[in-house]
């Protein structure tokens, strides 16, 4: 095979150029990169939408050679940095260390008192922190921080109704659907009405209905009337007497005894006409309850019923006249 010598020479040149080009990207395999000295991490928060009075907190993690210590006095002192900016606090913490490096976390807390009328760009100036190792010193600069401050303004655009459903500033996308409670309401109503009717029925059965408005003697009348049915029982007449005594006590607003009847009728003149009958009742009561010499018969029940009816009638008449 015959090869053109000129062509062979050209191919060698091209190989050398490619080889040189490739050599540009070749580096020693075992060579380690030099550790970075300075800020390795930072957390600065949002740099917009800051309004007057907001607290701004900046965190930095800085890395220095292991023999360097942070000089606390190099941290900026608390106080005004500008007429609108105050450094509230600055502190540091050693968070890790090994043979070669140390990492410090720096924390700066600022508060801005700038009150812009429109959105305004501002800058927190750069700060410097100093590290020392024997006679050597190294200074790390905390870079200036640019941010924008916003004015505090109404969020509802002027001229847009806020109370009209048609022109409301914020409207629901869809009308919410509600669970129907009509059936439940109906059931509750039926239950409540039934319950009220039952309570009224029970009160009327037991004679409590309108008892507050009824004369105590009228109440006693009903009680004695019920007890009359059991007049054969020993305790029935005692209970009937007690019912009438309770009526007197209620009307007198205290326990009323025989010797107080005179005062009682003078305070309730409508009952004055019945004083003798009241005295007789107290005597009958004493004979039955205290002497235990008398047992009630239907006539005695009738006497009590008559007294209660008369006294209730007298009270009703007095009420009408007044």
């Amino acid at each position: 095979m015959v090869i053109n010598p000129l062509l062979n020479l050209n191919m060698n040149k091209a190989n050398i150029i490619v080889l040189l080009f490739l050599m540009m990207f070749i580096r020693p395999i075992n060579a380690e990169p030099a550790p970075h000295i300075g800020i390795v991490e930072q957390s600065l928060g949002r740099d917009f939408g800051i309004v007057v009075g907001d607290i701004i907190e900046h965190y930095y993690v800085v890395q220095v050679p292991a023999n360097y210590n942070l000089t606390p006095a190099s941290l900026p002192p608390n106080g005004d940095l500008d007429y609108w900016l105050e450094l509230l606090n600055s502190d540091y913490q050693l968070i890790s260390e090994n043979d070669q490096l140390r990492r410090y976390r720096l924390h700066f807390t600022f508060q801005t008192f700038y009150a812009p009328l429109d959105v305004r760009a501002l800058t927190i100036p750069s700060l410097a922190v100093r590290f020392t190792a024997d006679d050597n010193a190294h200074q790390i600069a905390i870079p200036a921080w640019d941010f924008t401050m916003s004015p505090i303004k109404e969020i509802v655009p002027r001229g847009v109704a806020s109370d009209s459903t048609q022109n409301a500033f914020m409207k629901a996308d869809l009308r919410p659907t509600t669970i129907s409670t009509a059936n439940l309401k109906q059931q509750i109503w039926i239950l409540a009405v039934s319950l009220i009717i039952l309570v009224i029925f029970w009160l009327s059965l037991n004679g409590y209905l309108f008892s507050f408005a009824r004369s105590p003697f009228q109440q006693a009348f009903h009680e004695v009337k019920k007890l009359r049915k059991y007049h054969a029982e020993d305790s029935a007449f005692s209970q009937a007497l007690q019912a009438v005594h309770r009526a007197f006590n209620r009307r007198a607003k205290q326990a009323l005894f025989a010797h107080q009847i005179e005062d009682f009728v003078s305070q309730h003149p409508e009952l004055k006409a019945y004083q003798e009958k009241i005295d007789n009742f107290y005597q009958l009561s004493a004979e039955t309850l205290y002497s235990e010499q008398k047992k009630g018969d239907p006539t005695d029940f009738d006497q009590l019923l008559s007294l209660c009816k008369q006294l209730a009638g007298a009270e009703k008449l007095a009420l009408k006249k007044s």
Binding site: H245, R246, A255, S285
Partner: peptide, 8 residues
């Protein structure tokens, strides 16, 4: 007491 305690 006398005004409160009923008898019987």
């Amino acid at each position: 007491v006398l005004n409160t305690i009923p008898s019987p």
